[in-house]
Amino acid sequence: MAHIPDGVLSVPVLAGGAVIAAAGVALGLRLLDDRLIPRAGVLAAAVFVLSLISVPVGPSSVHLLLTGLMGLMLGAAVFPAVLVMLLLQALLFGFGGLTTLGVNTVNIALPGFIAAALLGPAIRASRNAAKRGALAALLGALSVAGTGGLVALSLALSSSSYTPVARVLIATYLPLMVGEAFVTAAVVSFLARVQPDALRPASA
């Protein structure tokens, strides 16, 4: 749902997305030294696999994004990791698009990066399991809400005839927000108990 295909968006939106994505990817790649590339690559593969599981929420089912969690584990490297996942989806499976790679990378990675930068320190420092779970749920919900808002914004900025669709689109993100919040809380609690180092970008 977050992957906008080729042929929908206008040129200024595509170009703007590409510029922001390039800046994010450059920042992320600078942080990845040789020892950390396998870690980021294998984590991206794991998140890719996990996003294929369909999780029932109410009468519908959703596919998780887990970008807040990626922001927590990878920091700014979430940008190249998301771009890699999108490129593989486009080239190996034919989903998504080539011209929309930049916009889609920003829509998916940026909210996760920002939410993790804001909430990450408190989540790592928290010694209280309930508080940590609540913060992690907020992380998941915020990153999904951000992605929904950015996808709607990309459509609305491209053409005014998309605006009503964009409004309805935001509503379709509500079930995903619920699922993402609960699952992110469970993953973070699990990792905090089993391997707390996993919750920081560079464990090397």
Binding site: P38, R39, V42, A46, L50, L69, F182, Q195
Partner: peptide, 23 residues
């Protein structure tokens, strides 16, 4: 949702271990 969270956590831990071995 909690069970899927534990599943995801387990997959991520194994991925990190694998990355370590690969490096």
């Amino acid at each position: 949702w909690r069970s899927y969270g534990h599943l995801a956590g387990m997959v991520l831990i194994r991925a990190l271990d694998r990355a370590e071995r690969v490096t």
